[in-house]
């Protein structure tokens, strides 16, 4: 489910079936890596669309958490922990972070939720056909990850 009012009605009606929350993490920077941070944000944004479509009934796709890239690691971790705590407290059994920013990879062990780190692909330079097939492929592999995680829990 997306973070839109129509899907929220569905969520409120079927809450016991929705046990997974996905929080995309978007870096924002105005330094030398401005383009890189845009590419990361863009890639994750595009990726979340087919992901949400596939698992509409079991996951809620949050609007995403944007953070300034020049913040210290400790600060970032602190915020992420607040996020996941809130989600766990609200009855979600699985919390996934999806990002392209490699900073999170080093923080992975500190998080209770699962971190999915994907290197960003320069999709903006591709035509639509190539972009769709690459995205589809990426999503297909992501699906396995989610299903695996759900299965382990049964």
């Amino acid at each position: 489910m997306k973070w839109v009012s129509q899907d929220m009605d569905m969520f409120l009606g079927a809450r016991e079936y929705v046990d997974t929350a996905v929080l995309p993490l978007f870096p924002v920077s105005f330094g030398n890596d401005i383009k890189q941070s845009v590419a990361m944000t863009e890639f994750i944004q595009l990726l979340t669309i087919p992901l949400e479509r596939q698992f509409k009934g079991r996951m809620i796709m949050l609007p995403g958490h944007s953070y300034l890239k020049n913040k210290s690691k400790d600060k970032l971790l602190e915020e992420a922990i607040v996020w996941e705590q809130e989600l766990f407290d609200n009855g979600f059994k699985h919390v996934f972070f999806v990002t392209s920013d490699s900073v999170w990879k080093t923080l992975e062990d500190e998080l209770k939720g699962d971190l999915i780190w994907l290197p960003s692909i320069p999709l903006a330079a591709m035509d639509e056909g190539a972009r769709n097939s690459i995205l589809e492929d990426q999503v297909k592999q992501l699906l396995q990850l989610f299903m695996q995680k759900w299965q382990d829990d049964v």
């Binding site: 569905m10 479509r53 596939q54 698992f55 509409k56 009934g57 079991r58």
Partner: peptide, 8 residues
């Protein structure tokens, strides 16, 4: 589209 909650 699943008739339950709309997954694929």
């Amino acid at each position: 589209v699943c008739k339950h909650l709309g997954c694929v």
